[in-house]
């Protein structure tokens, strides 16, 4: 591999790593707080992309009912991101309230809640299929694509936006979790859930906040993803969701920096494997490497072994 294609692959790897990282974050935050693997999270990413699609096409005036003024595509893009993040956070919070909270209230075991999460994911996928049909949709071009070429390496402004968004989210979340009281409460819950109310903290508030963070980051990933690869279909969240989950585990689930590093590691392995081997070998070799890694360090890169609570 020459230096030029190395840097080309590096940028692609960082873009995919950013997608994985943004989604992995939702898995890791919810796991950190509830010790729940929220298997519906990949489908929250899909829901985010669809909400983004409808928000964007509405703002562009594609429907009979539309805004009185015409917005420039860049404004539409920013508004779409913000509105989609808010609405998708609402979906995530609803999912928690409807599917997980009743089980938690009754003291259900973790296995039952994980199975509920799997089912919730299938319901989101198939609900979408039933409501909107199987036909694919194309996400409108909101950002005028600009291609830069530096030293033979080409990249688009979309890729730069994706990578910067992931880095920005990382620093934002680290700050929330380290410095704010609600962030401390999130860390405290992962250590001892029962003792948290003794601090005068309503557990449900912390859980809702966690779902808001995770779901809005999945929405951000969803809109950015379809801005780069503008095809929407109901199962688009399944594979990328699994991969992001694996990234979260490789990074050390429950750890924010783990989700990011894990996401980037997966992005790098995938892209560089595909650069060397035939592309049909990509996932086989990539996951083989990760499996090997986990067998050596089962707690992931940043994870520490801890006693199972709850």
């Amino acid at each position: 591999m020459d230096i030029q294609s190395f840097f080309q692959n590096l940028i692609n790897a960082m873009q995919w790593g950013s997608f994985y990282a943004l989604i992995a974050l939702g898995y890791t935050l919810v796991y950190g707080v509830l010790l729940l693997i929220n298997f519906a999270h990949g489908d929250i990413f899909m829901v985010g992309a669809y909400i983004g699609f409808f928000v964007a096409t509405f703002l562009l005036g594609s429907y009979a009912f539309h805004l009185p003024m015409i917005l420039s595509p860049n404004v539409v893009f920013v508004l779409t991101l913000l509105i989609t993040m808010i609405l998708t956070a609402g979906v995530g919070v609803t999912l928690e309230r409807v599917a997980y909270r009743p089980l938690r209230r009754r003291g259900a075991g973790r296995l039952y809640i994980v199975i509920t999460a799997l089912m919730a994911g299938l319901i989101l996928e198939n609900g979408n299929l039933a409501l909107l049909g199987a036909s694919r949709r194309a996400f409108p071009d909101l950002i005028e694509k600009v291609v830069y070429t530096i030293g033979g390496v080409t990249f688009t402004n979309v890729k730069i936006i994706v990578i910067l968004a992931a880095l920005g989210v990382f620093f934002l979340l680290e700050t929330i979790v380290r410095k704010t009281k609600i962030g401390m409460a999130m860390r405290a819950i992962s250590y001892d859930r029962v003792a948290v109310p003794l601090m005068g903290i309503p557990i449900d508030t912390v859980i809702v906040f966690t779902f808001i963070l995770g779901s809005s980051m999945a929405a951000l990933a969803g809109v950015l993803f379809v801005s780069a690869y503008p095809v929407l279909e109901p199962y688009m969240g399944a594979m990328i969701g699994w991969k992001a989950f694996i990234a979260a585990v490789v990074g050390g689930i429950g750890e924010i920096r783990g989700a990011f590093i894990g996401g980037f590691v997966l992005g790098f392995i995938e892209i560089f494997v595909a650069a060397v081997f035939p592309s049909t070998f990509r996932d086989l070799i990539a996951f083989g490497i990760l499996l090997l890694f986990l067998s050596i360090k089962p707690t992931g890169i940043f994870g520490v072994a801890r006693a199972q609570k709850i």
Binding site: M184, A185, R187, A188, S190, D192, L198
Partner: peptide, 14 residues
């Protein structure tokens, strides 16, 4: 039942 993964000050702050 103090929070072992937090500092003394963070426990009090919480």
């Amino acid at each position: 039942r103090v929070f072992g993964n937090l500092t003394v000050l963070e426990n009090l702050k919480l």
